[in-house]
């Protein structure tokens, strides 16, 4: 992996909440176009790790370089860096005071100073890619969870990010809604987007991931290709985790 290809470089990062040591000496490099899926039991630190990549959480120590910016350095303008990192949340977090279209247009118009006509054109294109063109002028409260999450992905993509972060994007959805959201994510992965995904969807991970990372007790216990991780797990805790997940 050459320097130029590295999109995310994390070196010896620690994070504690009081007595609770959530992340211990985490180091991880992620290349351009790579799709990394992070799995692990609840409380293993995978979500906290993900949220550090756009500084929704700050590390106690260690280095995090994203998209060429050292975001662990206090002098870095984090808002500029965030414009190039899209994030999708478990609870969608669509802006309730705007319509679907306005949700997607808000950031490009306010931050990239895109004129409204161009922003709307782009927003409608994105709505089409997520299959929700007919919802453009709806208030977000009228959408189902699956629809909301697809709009949230479109909102993040509207800023043409280099990296997309997904924090359990399907955990709050009814089962029948999950497929639509995963399809959108699959297409995105195929288009070459660098993606870091926290999820419990093992089938999806097998299908889409270039690399699977297993978190447990604040540590990366094992990582490798989906075949290595799912079919020949070496770590005892990973074996235990997989047996629970697949039998559930």
């Amino acid at each position: 992996m050459s320097e130029a290809q590295v999109k995310v470089h994390v070196d010896k990062v620690n994070k504690s909440y009081g007595e609770n040591h959530v992340l211990r000496d985490i180091s991880l490099d992620i290349a351009e176009n790579e799709v990394v899926v992070m799995i692990g039991p609840s409380g293993s630190g995978k979500s906290t790790f993900l949220r550090m990549l756009n500084q929704l959480e700050t590390p106690d120590n260690g280095t995090i370089i994203v998209d060429g910016y050292d975001i662990s350095d206090k002098n870095t303008d984090i808002n500029k860096v965030r414009e190039n990192i899209g994030m999708v949340f478990q609870n969608f977090n669509l802006f309730n005071n705007y319509t679907v279209l306005e949700n997607i247009m808000l950031a490009p118009v306010e931050l990239k100073k895109l004129d409204k006509v161009a922003a709307e054109k782009k927003a409608r294109e994105l709505l089409e890619t997520v299959g929700l063109s007919d919802k453009a002028d709806m208030p977000v409260s009228s959408l189902s969870g699956g629809q909301k999450q697809r709009i949230a992905i479109a909102r993040a993509l509207a800023m043409t990010p280099d990296i997309m972060l997904f924090d359990e994007p399907t955990s709050a959805l009814d089962p029948e809604m999950v497929g639509d959201v995963l399809d959108v994510m699959k297409n995105l992965a195929e288009s070459g987007m660098t993606m870091i995904i926290v999820t419990h969807e093992m089938g999806f991970a097998k299908q889409v991931a270039d690399r699977v990372v297993f978190f447990e007790s604040g540590k990366i216990q094992e990582s490798g290709t989906p075949d290595q991780v799912f079919d020949a797990p070496k770590n005892e805790r990973l074996q235990e985790f997989l047996s629970k997940v697949t039998h559930a």
Partner: peptide
């Protein structure tokens, strides 16, 4: 909801 602020910040606001 706190998520509203996080979503806005994550976009770069």
């Amino acid at each position: 909801d706190k998520g509203q602020m996080e979503a806005a910040r994550s976009l770069g606001f």
